[in-house]
Design a protein around this nucleic acid. Sequence first.
DNA 1: CTTTCATTTGAGAATCATTTGCAACAAGAA
DNA 2: TTCTTGTTGCAAATGATTCTCAAATGAAAG
Lengths: 146, 146
Amino acid sequence: MIDHEVQFKRFLQKQGLKLTPSRARILEAAFSMHEHFDAEKLYDLIKADNVSLATVYRTLPLLLEAGLITRTVRIGGRDRFEHILGHPRHAHWLCENCQAVIETDLSALQSAITKEAKALKFDIRQISLNISGLCWKCKDGANDSQ
Amino acid sequence: MIDHEVQFKRFLQKQGLKLTPSRARILEAAFSMHEHFDAEKLYDLIKADNVSLATVYRTLPLLLEAGLITRTVRIGGRDRFEHILGHPRHAHWLCENCQAVIETDLSALQSAITKEAKALKFDIRQISLNISGLCWKCKDGANDSQ
DNA sequence: CTTTCATTTGAGAATCATTTGCAACAAGAA
DNA sequence: TTCTTGTTGCAAATGATTCTCAAATGAAAG
Ligand SMILES: [Mn+2]
Ligand SMILES: [Mn+2]
Ligand SMILES: [Zn+2]
Ligand SMILES: [Zn+2]
C-alpha cells in the first residue's frame, strides 16, 4: 500500500469509516494528477469504474480533513484542489487575464507565519497565499482574453 | 464627493460607464460597513432604496476592478468582500470550527512578495493570505460546532 | 456460511448563490 | 424630438454542491 493510502486508511479508521474501493479509487486519481483538479476532473478520471460524482463530492472533504489534499485557487466557480504529500507548500499566482497559475516557494514566509500563529495561539491547518494580477505575458498587451 | 466616490467615477468613465444612483448607493453601503460583507448583506442595507440584488451582483465586479474592494474569505458558499481605501492589507485567519476571522498585519511579508513579483514580472492586483485552522478558543476543546 | 447492523453508494432531486434575458428606462448627442 | 448607448428591476436560468433514499456492502459474530 502506498504512503497516502496508508495515511487515508488510518484517518478513516480513526473516524470509524472504511477505505472502500470507491474511496481508494478517488484517492488514487487525486494522486495520479500532478496539476490542480476539481471534482468534475476527478470524476472524469474514474467514472469508467462507476464511482459516482456524489461520492467524489463526499470524499473530497475527507481527503481535506485527512490532510492529504488542500484547496487551491477557485476558478470559474469551481473549487480546486491539489494533493499534498511530497509537495512543499507554495504560493499561487493567478493571472486574471489568461488564468495561468504560477507557483512559488512559500518557505521564506513560513517562519514569519508560524511566529504569528504562536502569538495568536492559532492551530494552523492550511496556509493559502494567493496573489492575483497579470502575468508577464498579459501585463502590457490588450486582452487576448481567455 | 468622497475619496472612493471620485475614484469609482474615474474608473467608470474610463470604461464608458456611468456613476448611477444605484452604483453610488452600493458603493456607499460598501464603505459604510467596516466588517466583511457579502452580496446579500449589502443588499439588505439598500433594498429600501429599491436597488435590486442583481445590480448589487453586477456592481461588485466593478468595485473589484476599480480596486475599491477586495475578496476575502469565502464562508458558507458565499463570496465575501471588504473595502480597501484606508485599510492596510492584512492576512485572514479563519477558524474552521467557529468561523471566527482574525486579521493580522501583512506588511512584514509584503516586501518578500514584492520581490518575488519583480522576479516573475507579475503585476500584482491583489494579495490574499488566508490561513485556516483552529483559533485558540477552539483548538483544544470538543466541537461546540456551528 | 449466515445474520446483523452500521456504513456506503449511485441516481436523481433539491439547494441556493450567482448570472442572464429582456423589456422598460435614463441621459447625452444630434 | 429622435437616436443611441448604457442601466435596471424582475423573473427565469444556471450550475456547482448537497441531500434523500432505497439498495448494496462489509466487518464482525455466531
Ligand atoms: Mn499548486
Ligand atoms: Mn479583512
Ligand atoms: Zn496571463
Ligand atoms: Zn474558533
